[in-house]
Write a protein that binds this DNA or RNA. Structure first.
Lengths: 338, 338
DNA sequence: CTGAAAGCGCTTACAG
DNA sequence: CTGAAAGCGCTTACAG
């Protein structure tokens, strides 16, 4: 079933069919209507390879996840992000090509191959690093790309980001409002930009509110390291009265660890998770968490990429909806200590 | 950068370049070596659209997830499955095209479009239903497809599956070994084949071990319905002494619900989760769970699909590694009741 | 073993 | 408004 069949059936040339199908001028309204009807009757769909070859557009965008398979499964973030991206892409006949790779080197290799194969028209970048080698490669290759993260750390590539600073302030304010003075933090990987931004915001808040602690332990986001970091923080003297965790999995692991050490949450220790998820709601007590609409975040990024591919000059650093703090049962008044 | 450039540089025709690059006979070894060197020097990669158009192979396979975005994020299953599929595909230059849709109707529409566009060479089917309209559509379209699930419910389409029956037997045996006689089950959606298979296995085990309960409540896999189902089961008299849940999220929700109702796990109620995950390990107490290597499952399915696409006649119903029961702290001796 | 050519199914300038 | 044709970058029969 090709435009050739349609042309024969409608008594016109292939060119006319193409114009009619693509809404281009060059055919009369009557002819166009006739051609469209024939195409519909025959159940015609454009061959994506032929269209890609002659238009130099693949009709697909790429997303690469460079995380070990275990942590990928554990974090709900990625699946929600993908859902959001898809929600936007599937409004058009644009496909999402997904690849899972072990490290950044493999990720860069995949972009390079995709681009020289012309397999995708653009790419979505996630897990932005403070120093991110991918950004330079993408710019050099000339792939239209949009970055999740930021702001201002991607060398001119457009990005969408959520405001970590405001969110961190809300968290610290909430804790200060509960009389907490010794607040610690279990962070993710140091090289990730969002970790870095939260670091800065946390340190600024520590000074602003004149907190007494402010120690931060870095991890790989895994529950094992979340547990180890919690043990480390809870061996300090005096103890922190609240800990902020960089993801839901570590927060749950940390809360469990604290309980094992004989602390009662929230009486003895307040716990805040970053990125709310079902996990935070299912644990006992349910965790106070920073909540973002990750699907909307993904959709937002996809939309920006599509605009970029279509030649628009998108805003650099579009800010997404601000995260909100969902207060549950894991935060309470700090105990007055001796 | 095309084979034309390589041909010019190497002083041969495009045809010779194509033969050399694809390992076809038709060029001398010396020429082949020279051509390959030129191609490498120029950093050539085949244009995927051109190759797809002339070879009628897209170099991609498709996966469609038809679940609401929320439950997608909550279940670790899918991301692990995708990781496994990717691990196999990325050994070759085969891309994974992913789509997230709201329902089966949209899923069928997407297959139809993909196939008439020749965007994918084959498809992977998941969440198999007892009566599954997709199977017929796929067969009719002639898309090479492999089904996750089964066995024997896919009208000739090859499938990989894991043995739900043996796993269910292991679960029930474990509970019976702990003197449980009143065992209930919180199942997933009734129309899903794996739910159905577990149902049958559960009923068979109930009879075999002469259990006194065996009631099953169906849900949509969500924690909310898991909680409601648990409440319902725990309002019976006499109470079940153990509940088997069809996924990790509901098991955790159910355990929490039981605790809220004043039951202590495992003293008053034993809980078993199906599909182990970090969730099961992080709750207090950690949950006894049926564990499968979902990544291997995904890889297995991808490999079968690639063979099918390459023209092999794959075995129908290849069985994957058997699931295993991981015993943790949520199951214990049944209390002797009055 | 090599060369010259047709063809995959589209898009798009170029003449009429 | 329409027709006839070239071209996208590959693969692959067909002659020599």
């Amino acid at each position: 079933m090709t435009i050739r069949d349609i042309a024969a059936r409608a008594g016109v040339t292939k060119g006319a069919v193409s114009f009619a199908l693509n809404g281009q001028p060059g055919v009369s309204e009557a002819t166009r209507t006739r051609i469209l009807k024939v195409a519909k009757d025959l159940g015609w769909q454009p061959n994506s390879a032929a269209r890609a070859l002659s238009s130099s557009k693949s009709g697909a965008v790429g997303l690469i996840l460079a995380r070990p398979a275990r942590t990928l499964g554990a974090e709900q973030f990625f699946m929600q992000l993908i859902s959001g991206i898809e929600a936007e892409l599937s409004k058009r006949p644009i496909a999402l090509v997904l690849q899972v790779v072990p490290d950044l080197e493999a990720e860069v290799a995949a972009y390079t191959r995709w681009w020289s194969e012309r397999r995708v028209d653009g790419a979505l970048l996630t897990d932005l690093r403070v120093e991110d080698s991918r950004v330079g490669v993408l710019r050099e290759l000339g792939i239209p790309a949009v970055v999740f993260g930021g702001p201002g750390h991607h060398d001119g590539l457009p990005g969408v980001w959520s405001d970590e600073t405001t969110a961190m302030n809300a968290v610290v304010e909430h804790l200060v409002g509960l009389d907490h003075r010794r607040v610690a933090r279990v962070a993710g990987r140091r090289e990730f930009l969002h970790t870095h931004l939260r670091d800065q915001a946390f340190q600024a808040a520590v000074e602003q509110y004149d907190l007494l602690d402010g120690s931060t332990v870095y991890t790989d986001f895994s529950p094992a390291e979340g547990e180890a970091a919690t043990r480390q923080l809870l061996s300090a003297d005096p103890l922190p009265s609240a800990i902020i965790f960089d993801n839901d999995v570590m927060a749950v692991a940390g809360a469990r660890t604290a309980a094992e050490l004989g602390l009662q949450i929230p009486r003895d220790l307040s716990v805040v998770a970053w990125d709310d998820s079902i996990l935070c709601q299912l644990t006992q007590p349910p965790l106070t968490a920073v909540s973002r609409d990750i699907e909307a975040y993904g959709a937002h990024g996809a939309r920006a990429l599509l605009e970029l591919i279509e030649g628009a000059v998108p805003d650099i650093d579009v800010q997404d909806h601000a995260p909100s703090l969902v207060v549950r049962k894991s935060t309470a008044k700090a105990r007055t200590r001796p």
